[in-house]
Design a protein around this nucleic acid. Sequence first.
DNA 1: GCGCTCTTATATGTCTGACATATCGTCCAG
DNA 2: CTGGACGATATGTCAGACATATAAGAGCGC
Lengths: 251, 251
Amino acid sequence: MTATASARRKESRTAAIAAELGAAIVAGVYRPDELVPGEVELSHRYGASRTVVREAFKLLSAKGLIASRKRSGTRARPREAWHMLDADVLAWRLKSGQAEPKFVFDLLHVRAIVEPAAAAMAARSHTAATLAAIETAFADMECAGHDAVLFADPDIRFHKAILAATDNDVMMAFGALTEAALGVFVRVASRHAGAPAPSVPLHRAVLDAIRRRDAEAAHAAMMALLDRTARNVERNVGRPRASRRAAKPSK
Amino acid sequence: MTATASARRKESRTAAIAAELGAAIVAGVYRPDELVPGEVELSHRYGASRTVVREAFKLLSAKGLIASRKRSGTRARPREAWHMLDADVLAWRLKSGQAEPKFVFDLLHVRAIVEPAAAAMAARSHTAATLAAIETAFADMECAGHDAVLFADPDIRFHKAILAATDNDVMMAFGALTEAALGVFVRVASRHAGAPAPSVPLHRAVLDAIRRRDAEAAHAAMMALLDRTARNVERNVGRPRASRRAAKPSK
DNA sequence: GCGCTCTTATATGTCTGACATATCGTCCAG
DNA sequence: CTGGACGATATGTCAGACATATAAGAGCGC
């Protein structure tokens, strides 16, 4: 576990160390506000220079995972400080064994809030160019047909193109969320169920509504699409467990 | 402009350089995929070592603002790659002169999507502890009364407490957005209009709805609150300008 | 014993200079 | 004109050193 997939590709040492440390933090290896090993110790442990460890620390601190203070050392930050929509944080959190089914449903829930609204905005604000991007992605989805893996790439492009068509810079930030969620779905789907083809009509409904600038229909169609996804994941992963909180909502 | 507010406090050199470079990038000083000055040149320009510049680069690359490749150099990334919900990115973008009224309205628009939904979730999922946090923030708001500056802190805490009460980790990521938007509002309000007191009843409506677990009412109340904020900003800042896009929506 | 100041050890922050490595241009040979 | 060799260049990594803030303990007066 000390040297996991550090040499998976042409990843720089800095990135590799950041990935391993980041994954450990989001996996809960270090409690909130607990000290992580010092720079010198980590540099020895990884056989790298202190420079590299420090640069990895900077990457992680920019993502809200750690904070350094002189003399005190570097501490893992509590979960509410993590940048949950950062692509790396999402990936590390989802990769760390799927010990967190609740997190998957939290993601789906946020998507169910954001993406229908995005579809509605796209219906109102799309241009020829941004609409074309959505249409291209959809066409590629149709071609990909029944292969769940091939299907994933145009699927992600489809949803990202809708975000881009909203003409709202902030909306783009949700691309990482969609991408991470779709990635999970692919892994789940490849273990269990059949072809992704049944979702094509649902995507088509979204595209059609956007094309004719029908914001309400776009909202509804996207909601339906995400509902299907949620039910699919629910069936394959199991219902979300009880909250991690001490006190549970009295319902 | 070369050495702006670099010594504003006890900011490390790394952070100061990252802040200045980051602000320059979001301000559009460097076009998308344009080279930023090399590490050695910047280290000379700032009178710092290359180490510090590199660590600043790591901070910025973790926020999606730049990307480095060997031999090629380091390039500013296009806007769609920026992590728009990162607190620093938001701050730099809003601080850079308010040359971007459209961005302020983009923020408000996203808040209008996320926060009502968050209020509804909080109504369903809050616990004794998370509800107490909301109530405390609200009480402090009432005390702050008519001072727009004093009002801002409990206001931010109020909205963040609602996000925390959703019992959804991903929701916490929107705290930075709320905080940034409220900061803008304070600056706008201090230049123009009167006391923030009129918004107290609107906040109270949100709190009451959450307390009695009425999700729909909480959604509506939060929407009303944000509507008021939006109209306020609109009145003081002016309507959003036309899109920056080449082709405009045909309407 | 209790509280205060002063010292000291420690971990991060910064600097320097060097070498490694990938890659973009260019140039030359076929 | 094509394709491969080669050097220049900017980032990536390394090593060792010093600076600085500060938590923790030592010492001291009360």
